[in-house]
């Protein structure tokens, strides 16, 4: 009997429309609030602000198979600013990589949901991160492999960095590398929320004209509203369409997005909500769901 060498087409997760993405993003925000409240420590503002980007990635952009996390035809996502991992855990659980119930184990002894992501602990994680500045390089290494070694032009590598994170020199080493090797399959996001631990990015270390900076490093640069999942999906498509040049998407986001008393307040960078604050946050988020 002849054996077919052509792999069966897979039933991949459906690509959601913009209304569905907004709905899912709100659900993910509620889960972030729940997780952080249960954990009693962790970062609030970044994960909430990035919920739309992660929702767009896991529910529209990425070709991935939650039933086979190591599928060798998948797109790959490296979370570089590992402290925002609650949003990734929520997106992975919503996608079906592991049970949603497990989210409440965040940061507990023995949990697969470590305070910062550890690749080998949980299916769906592509790397271990936390110390800032190393995700872009790893994504570039993977993109290099796909372009020059495995020759898989149909696969893409995505990464998200924080804006404070690009204070790190490692990021700019990777910026030169990805440009030199024309890594068109590399699509990076900067979560441009203007805050970091000690204050605003302007106070701590001004980033200047990021469009001009990344362009001068040879990148294809887009600037979008990072809290509009539809804009994220569209920018990723534009990035995929440009070959021979890596794409940087400057995603302007509101830190703490969706929970008004956290928005734009850098004190929420590294703080979890207490029980009352979490309850208030859930009320606000459910109201925003009702309004739509």
């Amino acid at each position: 009997m002849a054996v077919s060498m052509i792999a069966e087409p897979r039933a991949l997760p459906r690509r959601r429309d913009n209304d569905e993405l907004t709905e899912i993003a709100t659900r993910i925000r509620v889960r972030i609030v729940d997780m952080l409240e249960a954990a009693g420590s962790g970062h609030s503002a970044g994960p909430l602000g990035m919920a739309d980007i992660l929702t767009a990635l896991y529910f529209s952009i990425l070709r991935h198979d939650p039933t086979d996390p190591e599928w060798d035809e998948r797109d790959v996502f490296f979370l570089s600013n590992g402290h925002t991992v609650p949003v990734l855990y929520a997106a992975l659980a919503e996608s079906g990589y592991f049970p949603v119930d497990e989210l409440s184990s965040l940061r507990r002894l023995g949990s697969r949901l470590q305070g910062h992501p550890e690749r080998k602990a949980l299916p769906g994680l592509e790397s271990t991160s936390g110390p800032l500045g190393s995700g872009l390089s790893q994504a570039a290494g993977y993109a290099y492999a796909m372009r020059y070694l495995t020759r898989q032009p149909h696969r893409f590598v995505y990464t998200v960095m924080g804006d404070g994170e690009i204070n790190e020199g490692n990021v700019w080493e990777a910026a030169m590398f990805a440009s030199k090797y024309r890594l068109g399959q590399l699509i990076a996001f900067i979560d441009r929320n203007n805050i970091q631990i000690d204050g605003t990015t302007d106070e701590v270390m001004p980033l200047g004209d990021l469009v001009a900076k990344w362009q001068s490093f040879g990148w294809h640069v887009l600037e979008i509203d990072g809290n509009d999942p539809g804009a994220v999906v569209k920018a990723a498509a534009l990035g995929r369409a440009v070959s021979g040049q890596p794409t940087m998407i400057l995603a302007n986001t509101v830190p703490g997005k969706g929970v008004d008393f956290m928005e734009y307040d850098h004190r929420w960078h590294g703080m979890p909500p207490n029980a009352d604050q979490a309850e208030a946050a859930r009320r606000i988020l459910s109201r925003s769901r009702g309004e739509r």
């Binding site: 592509e126 790397s127 790893q138 993977y142 290099y144 070694l149 590398f177």
Partner: peptide, 18 residues
């Protein structure tokens, strides 16, 4: 990779993952 040792090992980590 040029004179960039941080990039050296992190690009390598990405290649290893691939």
């Amino acid at each position: 990779v040029g004179v960039a040792e941080q990039n050296l090992v992190t690009v390598a980590a990405g290649l290893a993952h691939a």
